[in-house]
Design a protein around this nucleic acid. Structure first.
Length: 609
RNA sequence: GGCCCCAUCGUCUAGCCUGGUCCAGGACGCCAGGUUCUCAUCCUGGAAACAAGGGUUCGAAUCCCUUUGGGGUCACCA
């Protein structure tokens, strides 16, 4: 058989959904495994909802995940995070800009909105062949009919009134031309064949649809754009797609696509070597993948964010009656009516959701790749976890456990359709978090430092500029201290708090002070004062985690302490203001000799007054 | 409601195709211990599932049927 070609065809109506990312990943992996090509096509036939920004965002997220396409729109990527993508960093990438995507075969354009002339000729072909027809009913009329049918507990079917009204292909074409001239809107419907359709699904097996199940669905909208069903069939044929892996929600669409493929032939304008005009459309190989749900079994959706933000706002309002849309508008800088509508569930604005979440200090559920990226997840942790949702390599590690940890290259080498599962999966954010923590732990200190800095530069610029002032050795020490304490890159901000604050800018927590400094007649303070000269005795050049650790241990031993705790805790409070922080050796080393002594003095003088 | 798909621990899953080695294995989470200067990491142990009922068979998580449960889809959205 000819070369395998798979595609991912997102609709650019928002960010890349986590489920879409898995679809793309599997299509990519299958193409790679088969030595084929992976293609991206942008399905922007919904004029109202599509946007170029979101198309670009989706491409960027895919590239970030390491899912790169051979055919499709081009995307220039800057210097991606090297350390977080081991194996992906070649010389050209390090030099800077690089372009993903091209039209080498060529079969573009890859934006459906630019392919309207192509769809039009096939639309006319179908009408000409008596397999489609213009329909002039308005959607209002049809909606009324549909409602009546539902009320009568009947399955609604379009009654083919327009098919019956004009009886020959020539008259239908003429009617279309006339309507076009007069600017009168109409749709084109496919004349559904009365025959059984069998879909040979590689995941689910043969799925049969009885004759008469299909209705005359619309293939061209009144605005002149094709519907999804039509565009997808035309494009997959013309773009040479051989395998279609998509979510199970599309399973019931497949008979429509198969029926269209049976009705269509190659138009003279699209004739190509081996595909002469008149040759019938081919049916690609289908595989429908299980769906991904939230842990509470609801469908994962952008709306989850709106719901969460709305709930947070309503909970707050229930507690404090003085909060209204007006006060929220003042606090968030948003329009009052927008907020009122949002609260009344009249809109699900993501912008409102984000601002309310920030205002009420709640975390919105992560449903898009972008959310995870922003929150400090590593791309290969995400793709690794996603790989396991509905697929499994079926291999064991040396110690007999299921092989779960692998990278994109492994997936590309081992992916097989016959190991795709049939059962829907719930998205366990906990397990993803654990995968991310493991991925972070697996980074070298250098890699962690570089990934963390990259991430901060984009999402926490203030922290980035502060940490940038550290010497390279200090940064590595900090990285070592942070790594086991961070499940995400964002997580590392908390244990790094001591390094992000100025020597005089943090407060000493009363509870920590009481327990570790004031208790037992200020035992902690006395110890701290006694220990300070030991630190002063360390020369600037010898200020390393090792020497600091030795100093602490030695001092504790001299004092006859069972361990270094009694020394470390007062020190910890003095340097960080809290009783929780990374190890003292690392903390002091990152702070440096001067800051350390300054903080101890400040503690002694403020707390020990 | 019509049509279609699915069914192993709370969750992701291995095992199912090619019945016996499965009183069902791993991972996440959870619980209990241990290491440690706090927190975290790390280590050890534990609880936890074949939806139900019929068959077929010497033998069924594995094959068949029914029931139940879950999901998808029925747009001029993809």
């Amino acid at each position: 058989m000819s070369q395998v070609i798979t595609r991912f065809a997102p609709s650019p109506t928002g960010h890349l959904h986590i489920g879409g990312a898995r679809t793309a990943l599997f299509c990519w992996a299958f193409a790679r495994r088969s030595g084929g090509r992976f293609m991206i096509r942008i399905e922007d036939t919904d004029q109202a909802r599509s946007s170029e920004e979101s198309a670009r965002g989706i491409l960027e997220d895919l590239a970030w995940l390491g899912i790169e396409w051979d055919d499709g729109p081009t995307l220039e990527v800057g210097s991606l995070s090297e350390a977080s993508r081991p194996g992906a960093a070649d010389a050209s990438e390090k030099r800077g800009a690089r372009v993903i995507g091209a039209d080498a075969r060529p079969v573009g354009p890859y934006f459906q909105a630019r392919r309207v002339p192509i769809y039009t000729r096939y639309l006319r072909q179908l009408v000409q062949h008596g397999r489609a027809y213009p329909a002039f009913e308005t959607s209002e009329v049809l909606e009324a009919q549909r409602k009546a049918a539902v009320a009568a507990k009947q399955t609604y079917r379009y009654d083919r009134a327009s098919w019956k009204a004009i009886t020959t292909p020539i008259d239908r074409l003429a009617a279309m031309d006339k309507a076009d001239r007069e600017g009168r809107p109409y749709v084109i419907r496919f004349f559904a064949p009365h025959e059984e359709i069998i879909v040979h699904d590689q995941v689910l097996g043969d799925v049969k649809y009885a004759a008469g199940e299909m209705d005359d669905f619309v293939i061209r909208k009144a605005d002149g754009f094709p519907t999804y069903h039509f565009a997808v069939v035309i494009d997959d044929e013309l773009m040479g797609v051989t395998h279609i892996l998509r979510a199970q929600e599309h399973l019931n669409n497949t008979p429509r696509h198969v029926a269209l493929q049976k009705a269509l032939v190659i138009h003279p304008d699209d004739a190509a070597p081996g595909r002469p005009a008149g040759s019938p459309f081919r049916t690609p190989i289908y595989g429908h993948m299980p769906l991904i749900f939230n842990m509470d079994a609801t469908k994962m959706s952008k709306r989850d964010k709106a719901k969460a933000a709305r709930k947070a706002a309503k909970d707050a309002i229930a507690k404090d009656r003085s909060i209204t849309a007006a006060t929220l508008a003042a606090a968030t800088g948003l329009d009052e009516k927008l907020i009122a509508d949002f609260l009344a569930a009249e809109n699900d604005s993501l912008d409102v959701a984000a601002r309310l979440a920030k205002h009420f200090k709640v975390t919105l559920p992560e449903v898009e790749v972008w959310d995870y990226r922003q929150n400090g997840y590593l791309p290969h942790a995400i793709t690794n976890f996603l790989s396991l949702l509905g697929w499994n390599p079926g291999l064991k590690t040396e110690d007999g456990k299921d092989l779960e940890k692998f990278d994109n290259a492994f997936l590309a080498a081992h992916f097989a359709i016959d190991r795709i599962g049939k059962t829907n999966a719930k998205f366990d954010r906990n397990k993803l978090l654990s995968f991310n923590a493991d991925a972070i732990a697996a980074l070298s200190d250098e890699q962690f430092a570089s990934s963390w800095m990259d991430w901060m530069r984009q999402y926490e610029p203030e922290a980035h500029s502060t940490i940038s002032r550290l010497a390279p050795a200090q940064l590595l020490t900090l990285a070592r201290a942070l790594k086991p304490r961070a499940k995400t890159l964002r997580d590392a901000l908390r244990p790094a708090a001591f390094a992000l604050t100025g020597d005089d800018d943090f407060a000493f927590e009363p509870a920590a002070v009481e327990k570790n400094l004031s208790a037992n007649e200020r035992a902690g303070l006395k110890l701290l004062a006694e220990f300070k000269p030991r630190l002063e005795a360390i020369a600037d050049a010898g200020w390393t985690p090792e020497s600091i650790n030795t100093t602490i241990e030695t001092f504790a031993k001299e004092k006859g302490m069972p361990n270094a705790g009694p020394v470390a805790q007062p020190l910890r409070v003095a340097l960080t203001g809290t009783s929780v922080s990374p190890g003292m050796a690392e903390t002091l080393a990152v702070l440096g000799r001067a800051s350390t002594l300054k903080r101890i003095e400040r503690c002694l003088s403020t707390v020990g007054r």
